[in-house]
Amino acid sequence: MGYFSNIYHGIRTLLTGMRVTGKYFLNARKGAITQQYPDNRDTLKMFERFRGEVVMPHDENNEHSCTGCQKCELACPNGSIEIIWDRVIDPETGKKKKAIDKHIYHFGMCTQCGLCVDACPSDAIKWAQNFENSVYDRTQLTRILNKPGSKVRAGVEE
């Protein structure tokens, strides 16, 4: 290729590329997909399956459905879940029954793999879509999932 045709070819390829970028430059407002985070916090909605952090839903009577079967603790690959349990006497039957004292969740160790929620037989734990998880001290990442004074919902069996 000759010297001048080389230059001509080079400039033409540059212009071809600039036509692409120019098209976007002129239609900048139309095709913008940039999210204006954190200004869009009110409208930003995560997908329902998004794995933010593990939570234990409680109903209005302060009851959860965790029976303390420890399947989540066994499923967890890195020891993020620790269950302190005890045997309490069931008032109806008078028999001793396993119940959780504390469901401790070390969020700092969690890799959000989802194996615990998958393993839970009574849907006691689920994923929350919260993703702003920064704290000033890592001890704040250790959370007790069951609320104080809560107990297992009647009828939930292992």
């Binding site: 995560m46 997908f47 399956r49 998004f50 794995r51 890799t111 959000q112 793999c113 989802g114 194996l115 998958d118 994923w127």
Partner: peptide, 24 residues
Amino acid sequence: FEETCGARLTMNYNVPGGLMQDIH
């Protein structure tokens, strides 16, 4: 990926025997 698997990069959607959940 986020809608179906729950994560954008580290999906962990496959389990031995199938998938963790059905597709969205």
